[in-house]
């Protein structure tokens, strides 16, 4: 330690020196470890997150594809959609995707069906 004007007088220095460090009330590591483990997502948790996100995305894509094929290729026995209706469908479909709502897409499908039917 450097000696300087800022050193304590010897009597006070003794008092500082003899103050033994106190022991903590409880060992600190278990608490720190628990908090650290709480910070890190476990492999299982990250797997379940990716599973949830992935399956959600797949379900949405499947729903949209189902609607597309259902509307654009109505199948045997149904008349093909007229070009005006097709244009309206594709135009509205774009805005439905822009809105990002499968419900909007579904209501569009229902509307188109009722227009075709009328």
């Amino acid at each position: 330690m450097n000696s300087s004007h800022s050193d304590l007088p010897p009597d006070l220095l003794d008092l500082f020196a003899e103050s033994e460090p106190s022991a903590p009330l409880r060992p600190m590591w278990p608490h720190v470890q628990a908090r650290l483990r709480g910070d890190r997502p476990s492999p299982r948790r990250s797997w379940s997150w990716s599973w949830a996100v992935g399956s959600g995305a797949l379900a949405t894509a499947g729903f949209a594809i189902g609607l597309l094929f259902g509307a654009g290729n109505p199948g045997a026995g149904n008349p093909p959609a007229s070009s005006a209706v097709e244009e309206s469908f594709w135009g509205d479909l774009g805005s439905s995707f822009a809105e990002g709502s499968p419900f909007a897409l579904y209501s569009l499908y229902e509307r188109l069906e009722s227009e075709e039917g009328s």
Partner: peptide, 25 residues
């Protein structure tokens, strides 16, 4: 390694904080 570090330094850190804060808790 972290555990060893905490166990090595918890006592001086605690003593310092007791004198800084005046409360063991």
């Amino acid at each position: 390694a972290f555990q060893a570090l905490v166990e090595r330094w918890e006592r001086p850190v605690f003593a310092f904080l007791v004198r800084m804060l005046g409360s063991r808790e």
